[in-house]
């Protein structure tokens, strides 16, 4: 009866109320930033005395914001491409390979996801200082790739494990080259895994801040670094405007994911 919503009796109202409160707790800060970004108060008085788009204009009139957003996008797209390609190839090896230490290797590939980012950030920063990659685009892409790869491998591996390999074998038996069978039979079948890998990899890089703080140079800053350095000085509403745009991006990505999932089901 505790696992049947309609048989909960008086508990139902208490638990539902609690869940609604928790949902409000999760949603409120996000709505709050959006409201704040349109508020006229420099000192973030809430509720705002007037409504304005001033902060958005200020955001767009400062070329440094746009520049850092473009840098972030460039890095994130590169990371996404490499992460999906390398992750796909590795996932084939991990799910179908027959070699000693396969499980240990899988664990190794997932380690960057569970270790505290700050440890990795300090370590890669030290290495990149030595080999001259700190503060370069290549450096950013490599560092973010290490963090993104586990997400890609998890998504693609689970898609490959759910794919019936005999379909690919059938294509080979019918005369397709093994590579052609992989490209034209297997890849379309696991496209939801590839899509998830791409989205996760993009987001991981786009939102990554810890490694970026260490590596950023005055000439190469990602958007999170720009927000971070501004936040350390003051809580200007310009950040609220930038954050609201980021929330907008999240919503777009979520809708896109939902659409793709729906499209794949039908």
């Amino acid at each position: 009866m505790l696992l049947n919503y309609h048989q909960l009796g008086s508990w139902k109202w208490f638990l539902t109320g609690f869940t609604v409160l928790a949902a409000v707790f999760l949603l409120l800060p996000i709505l709050f930033i959006i409201a704040l970004s349109f508020g006229s108060s420099q000192w973030l008085v809430f509720p705002p005395p007037h409504w304005t788009t001033h902060w958005y204009r200020e955001l767009f009139s400062d070329p440094r914001w746009l520049e850092s957003a473009l840098t972030s996008a460039e890095i994130a797209v590169l990371v996404m491409i490499f992460s999906v390609v390398i992750g796909l190839i590795a996932s084939f090896g991990l799910t179908r390979g027959r070699f000693a230490g396969r499980e240990a290797l899988r664990a190794l590939f997932l380690t960057p996801m569970i270790l505290p980012v700050v440890v990795f950030a300090v370590a890669i920063y030290a290495l990149f200082l030595r080999i001259g990659l700190s503060g370069t685009l290549t450096g950013f892409v490599i560092a973010h790739l290490i963090i993104a790869l586990p997400f890609s491998i998890i998504s693609i591996c689970s898609a490959l494990e759910g794919f019936d390999r005999s379909i690919e074998d059938a294509a080979v038996l019918c005369g397709a080259h093994p590579l052609e069978a992989k490209l034209r039979v297997t890849l379309p079948a696991i496209r939801h895994g590839l899509f998830a890998a791409a989205i996760f990899s993009f987001l991981v890089s786009w939102d990554e801040v810890v490694v970026a703080i260490f590596m950023a140079s005055p000439t190469l800053q990602t958007l999170p670094v720009r927000i971070w350095t501004t936040l350390r000085q003051d809580l200007t509403p310009v950040i609220a405007a930038a954050s609201s745009l980021l929330v907008g991006l999240t919503v777009v990505l979520m809708l896109l994911t939902a659409l793709v999932r729906k499209g794949m089901k039908s």
Partner: peptide, 8 residues
């Protein structure tokens, strides 16, 4: 974005 949430 984590920074956006922390800012809030």
């Amino acid at each position: 974005n984590l920074l956006a949430r922390t800012y809030a």
